[in-house]
């Protein structure tokens, strides 16, 4: 449920993220577009319950992130995932997931992660940074602060390898986070024997920045 407090927090963070992205145009670094025309970007989710393990993917990812290799801690942006892009290998199960009890794709067509900063950043060398992505996840109308353990790899001048004829960089983001379905009102407290409460999400994302 959206409480006035979470709604305000979401609005403030949204404005903050927008202003930050605008400000970053005048600073160093680049804005990476995470709409991946090659179809590689995806989220992989895994839920292990006593009766059944459910796993699937979502690839309808858009959004943009500002990244500056000189200041990786100031990485900011937002990522949006289309609910209808969630895919599981069982057609009936997918129908259930899209239904009102679970993800309610009609009412909530997307889920969003507002990245506010990168904490505990460690430079692993070769353009790779490890850290904790801090931000707010909005899912089924509920906004909640979440952390994701991420590895960011800045591939300088590699855009042409993905999009021939174009010059620029790639930003590869991989990581993990855990979302609790009770927290986001995803059929909260129900069918826990078949559908685990913790949703383990693996991030496999690539952003494009044309220079």
């Amino acid at each position: 449920m959206i409480t006035p407090k979470t709604y305000n927090m979401k609005r403030i963070l949204g404005i903050f993220a927008g202003l930050s992205l605008a400000a970053s145009l005048f600073a160093g670094g680049a804005i990476f577009d995470f709409k991946d025309p090659s179809g590689v970007s995806n989220l992989k989710f895994d839920m292990t319950a006593p009766v059944e393990s459910i796993s699937g993917t979502a690839d309808g990812i858009t959004g943009s992130v500002h990244f500056d290799a000189a200041h990786p801690g100031e990485t900011k942006g937002s990522l949006v995932v289309s609910t209808s892009s969630i895919m599981v290998p069982k057609s009936k199960m997918r129908e259930h997931i899209m239904g009102a009890m679970w993800m309610d794709a009609k009412k909530y067509p997307e889920l969003k992660f507002e990245l506010t900063n990168l904490a505990d950043v460690k430079d692993a060398g070769d353009g790779t940074f490890k850290g904790k992505a801090k931000g707010v996840m909005t899912l089924k109308g509920v906004a909640q602060e979440l952390d994701a353990v991420v590895t960011i790899k800045h591939l300088v001048g590699k855009l042409g390898a993905k999009l021939p004829g174009k010059k620029g960089d790639l930003l590869v983001v991989s990581g993990t986070l855990v979302v609790n379905r009770d927290d986001f009102n995803i059929n909260a407290g129900q069918k826990l024997d078949k559908v685990a409460n913790d949703i383990h999400i693996a991030l496999n994302l690539v952003g494009y920045a044309e220079m």
């Binding site: 993917t57 069982k90 057609s91 991989s174």
Partner: peptide, 22 residues
């Protein structure tokens, strides 16, 4: 070991980014 799947998953790895996708 699981229940019947109506789609077959093919896990692939992107050569440039090293990312795994299905």
């Amino acid at each position: 070991a699981g229940f019947t799947n109506t789609s077959i998953e093919h896990v692939k790895v992107d050569e440039i980014t090293g990312l795994e996708f299905t």
